[in-house]
Design a protein around this nucleic acid. Sequence first.
RNA 1: GCGCCGAUAGUGUAGUGGUUAUCACUAGGCGUUGCCAACGCCUAAACCCGGGUUCGAAUCCCGGUCGGCGCACCA
Length: 576
Amino acid sequence: MVVMTDIYENVMELAKRRGFIWPAAECYGSVAGFVDYGPLGAMMKRKIENIWRDFYVVREGYYEIECPTIGIEPIFVASGHVKGFSDIMCQCPHCGEYLRADHVVAAAGGKWPGGGSHDAIAEVLRHVPCTSCGTKLGPVAVFDFNLMFQTSIGPGSQRKGYLRPETAQGMFTDFGRLLRFYRDKLPFGAVQIGKAFRNEISPRQGMIRLREFTQAEAEIFVHPGEKNHPSFARYRGYRVPLLSCLHQQQGQEPELIPMGDAVRAGIIASEYVAYYIALTHDILVTIGVDPAKIRFRQHMMDERAHYAADCWDAEFHSPRFGWVEVVGIADRTDYDLKAHAAHSGLSFTAYIPYETPLVVQRRRIIPNMGRLGPRFRNRAKKVAEAIEHGIPGDQGMEITLENELIHVPPELYEVKDETVEVRGEEVVPHVIEPSYGIDRMIYAVLEHSYTEEEVEGELRRVLRFPPWVAPVQVAVFPLMPRDGLDEFAHTLVDSLAAENMVAEYDDNGAIGRRYRRQDEVGTPYAITIDYETKDDGTVTIRERDSMAQVRVPIEKVPEILRSLIRGTLTFSQLNV
RNA sequence: GCGCCGAUAGUGUAGUGGUUAUCACUAGGCGUUGCCAACGCCUAAACCCGGGUUCGAAUCCCGGUCGGCGCACCA
């Protein structure tokens, strides 16, 4: 094994050179936080997204929706992003450093005028020192910095819009429609894969922190009292490296725990959260993230959003960046739906019928408006409301209205005792949210797939992608570009393409060089047409990882490759 | 965003205030080659952008952009 000096640089150099990832708009000098996916990168991204769809849409049955990337202001006022995503900042007039105003005040031991005006904040700031250069700030400009990109909709800036900072809000705002689509039954889920945007102050670390990135998010709406997943059995015994709050407090290493045990021991809050932790692990391993470099870290209470009942991050390990978050799995409770209900004035509830209707004795007090009106005039309505909630006695009832005690005689209302059947209740569902950063997943796969080894004194670089992730599935080489071998090769490429496989023809240079070119972009199999093909119609299939070869009849190649790429056949099985 | 450092073919690099900017790999073409970056010949390909100093700037200076590191930021 060759020593890899800096895997990040080697991987990114390869990714750039071979058409996976490019800096965006390079001819104009690029902008930090934006990348282009080149031909192979875009292909690979689609494959990873489709694997994600296989898990969430095909298997879980959570349909995919697609909402605009521009959202109007009320959405993000309700979601809290307009407030919570913005920081009040100031710039030190002495050293030019941009500072978070609240941090500066806190560092000086001052009192933060939370909710105060910018002027009030500036007044506090002028007496405290800069956290960067230590000079007393003096008069300083205070401004909001919002991580959301802002735009205006229509001419004349009539309506403020934001580029969505997450795809999740679409599933929340569509809740009512989705509920009807799923025929008013909990649980149900909806997913979305799409772009999200955050105007990071200083994005670095290549693909790890982007200003425009792709998210895959699922929102699963469940009954607040029923957080057992109907298919939990699938993952009950599935073991995942968990780093709980307790593990972190005690400085322990992650521990492989079966999901069933983790829920029973209370490490994970519910079966739902555990189920998606396991499913996430399943997805990450399927796309080619090294299972030895994955862990699930529970958010500590102080880093958790106040409404989150539980929250776990899937992290992968990179020698360059350490542990990097790729997926967040949270029980967001009813926070989002309640917020949208409050701001929109609509109801975000599901009606849950009881198995057996409840028979309830109910006493209703009906004010007699015909008598209340003339007696209380403009206060009649308020008196009526108070009566409805009052306690009637033999001599009428006492109510308090604007600090005034009022006696209401019994003839002003009627008391009705009735028996009612309550058939169900309106509940605000809780939301289980697994949220994936597709770009980070792609980086993890690139880095974990990348290997360098020495073969006969030469450096061999291989991207050991799983066959179902590789952008090119198979390469076809005529041993010599003549004698009809090239004809055989072209025909084979066509029949592979007819089977929906991306097959690349190459007759340029020595055969070994061609194998190496494909190794470098992770093509799992290569077919070579040689002179034996002309005699007996067989070709060789060469496996990327072992470099071993097996001879098979040419007409069986498409079928064999299909099985190899699906994973229903292994290369070693071909030997027998 | 601040500070320090850097930027030369697709990649990795050498080098200089003054002729045609070095080398290797890669890539393309031709020949050769009967399965793992072989060989020969040929070809293509670069001084990050803008301004300044200068007779002359890719080289020196200033600003910007991008990248690295440290700080700050990172729902």
